[in-house]
Design a protein around this nucleic acid. Structure first.
Lengths: 259, 259
DNA sequence: CGAACTTTTGACAGGCTTCAAGACCGGTGG
DNA sequence: CCACCGGTCTTGAAGCCTGTCAAAAGTTCG
C-alpha cells in the first residue's frame, strides 16, 4: 500500500529555508518580519528522516530542542512506573512538538515516528535567546502551550464521559479538521497509527475500535478504501453530531496547527 | 464544622504586599530581584473574597487576568455543547490559575469557588508588559504551562487506564503531596470538594467514590475524622503503591505549586 | 511464500453505572 | 435548643458497556 499524497508534504525539501517552506504558514503563523524569519531559519537544523518505529526522544531524557514536523507523523506517550503506556497525542506535518519538555528541562513523553518522518530541529537554547528579542515568538510559544492544555482537557472529557462511539467520532472529526486546515481532504485520509494505538489513545480496547469501525461502516458513516488505514468519511454531519465537540478552535485527539 | 487550620493561609492579609506574603515562595518561585517583585506587586489587585459556589470566570468569557489564590480552593471545568461537564482541576492556595486563557484570549474553562476564597488578580496586559522586561518571569509562565500539560497528560493516563481504586489513591496521594509542599500536614486535610465533584473529576460515579472510600476504610488505608470531608491517610505506602505515580515532579489530579 | 503482525469477529465475564432507598449532615426558624 | 428540610453521602441490587480471551482472516515484508 503506497503512501497517499494527501499526507505527504511537497515543496519543502531538505535544502529549503523556512521562508520558502510550504509549512511556514503552519509552523510559523506568528507575524514575524522577514529578517526575523531569517534569524529563526539560521538556528534550525534539518536532520535525516526518522524511520517508522524510531524513537525521537524518550521520556526522562534531557530536553534540548523542539521539532517542527515537515512530513510524516508521530505518536507521543507517557509510561507509568508499572509500565502502563498512554498515548497522549498524534502529531502531523506542520506541527511543533517537544515544547512541554520546558518544565523540568526533561522530555515528559516518549515520541515515536509512525512512518518515515522528516523534521526541523530547533535547539531550545537558540529559540530561547531568539525569544528574548521577539515578543511575537514568545506569544506564539505561550499560545501553543495554552492551546495544548485546552486540547488535553478536552481529552479528559472524552476519556471521562464519552462512549466508545463518541470517542471514535470525536477522533475522526478532529483529524479531519486538522487535515482540512492543512489543505488536504477533510473526508479522505490515511490513519498512520494502528488500531492498537488508536485504542490506547482513546481509552478503549483494540477490539472495541474494530467493532465501532464496523458499526460505522454499517451505518454508512464511513468506509475504507484499499486498506483498513485509508478511510473515507461519508457522513460528516452525523459524525459531528456524535462527537459533541466543543468548538472549532480547539479539538481533542491531538494538536492542530498552532496559531 | 469549622474550617480546619491546615487549609487556611495565615499572614497574608489584604494589605500585605507580595514580598511579605507567605505565599510568595509558592506563587513567585521565580528568582525575581526585590525591585522586580515590587513591580509585580504594583500591578496586582486584591479583590474581595469569592463565596462558596461563586463563579470566578465562565468558559468563553474574555480573558483579562490570571489569579493567584491566597486562601480557599476552586474547581475548574469545561462544558461540552450537549451540557456534559468535566472537572479538569482543583486548585488551592498558592497556585496560579487562568493562564490557559492565553490561547484565543478567552477562558477555556469555568472556575467556581469551593469555599470562601481570596485571591490576587493579575491583569494579563500588565503581566505581559512586565514579562517583556523579565526573562525569569517569562520562563516561569512557560514552565507553569509546561507543567500543567504534563499533569493533564497524567490525568489522561488515569482516566484511560487506571481502576477506580487506583484513581482515588492517585488523587489522595497527589493532594497530600500538594499540601505537604505547602507546609501543611500530608496525612490530615479537608476535602473541600463534594463526592460528586470528585467522581466527575476522576471519571467515576458518585456511588463508586463512596464505595471505594468505604473499602479503603475497611482496609485501614484511611479514615474520616469529624465529617466525611476531613480525612486522615493512614497507610501512605499502600496508597502510593496503588497510585502507580509517575514521579514526584508532576502529579495528576490538580496542579501543584508552580516551580 | 511464509512468519509475524494487525485486524476482525464471537462469546463470555466483570467493573462500573444506574436506579432506588435510607442515613447522615448542615443550616434555618420556631 | 431542637425539630425540620434540602442536600450530601452511603449502601444494595440489577444491568450494561466494554474488556478479556480465543481464533480466524487479512496484511506486510524479508
Amino acid at each position: 500500500m503506497s503512501q497517499k499524497n494527501f499526507t505527504s508534504v511537497k515543496g519543502c525539501g531538505t535544502a529549503v529555508s523556512c521562508q520558502d517552506c510550504s509549512l511556514s504558514s503552519l509552523c510559523l503563523p506568528l507575524s514575524l518580519h522577514e529578517q526575523d524569519i531569517d534569524r529563526l531559519d539560521a538556528i534550525i537544523k534539518r536532520g535525516r528522516p526518522y524511520q517508522k518505529g524510531q524513537t525521537i526522544w524518550r521520556q526522562g531524557e534531557d530536553f534540548h530542542s523542539v521539532l517542527a514536523l515537515r512530513s510524516g507523523s508521530v505518536k507521543s506517550f507517557i509510561t507509568s512506573p508499572s509500565g502502563e503506556e498512554q498515548i497522549v497525542g498524534f502529531h502531523f506535518a506542520g506541527e511543533i512538538i517537544g515544547l512541554n519538555g520546558l518544565f523540568n528541562k526533561k522530555y515528559p513523553i516518549t515520541t515515536v515516528a509512525l512512518e518515515t518522518t522528516t523534521c526541523c530541529d530547533i535547539p531550545y537554547d537558540s529559540l530561547d535567546a531568539l525569544a528574548d528579542d521577539l515578543p511575537e515568538l514568545r506569544d506564539q510559544l505561550l499560545q501553543s502551550m495554552s492551546q495544548e492544555i485546552s486540547e488535553d482537557q478536552q481529552m479528559m472529557l472524552l476519556l471521562s464521559k464519552k462512549t466508545s462511539e463518541q470517542r471514535l467520532a470525536t477522533f475522526l472529526v478532529s483529524v479531519s479538521e486538522r487535515f482540512q486546515r492543512r489543505g488536504y481532504s477533510a473526508t479522505r485520509f490515511r490513519l498512520t497509527m494502528s488500531r492498537n494505538d488508536l485504542g490506547n489513545f482513546l481509552g478503549l480496547a483494540v477490539e472495541t475500535i474494530s467493532r465501532i469501525f464496523s458499526k460505522f461502516q454499517q451505518k454508512e458513516l464511513l468506509r475504507f478504501l484499499d486498506s483498513s488505514r485509508d478511510i473515507e468519511l461519508l457522513d460528516m454531519a452525523k459524525l459531528y453530531e456524535l462527537a459533541d465537540l466543543q468548538d472549532t478552535q480547539t479539538t481533542p485527539c491531538g494538536k492542530k496547527i498552532a496559531g
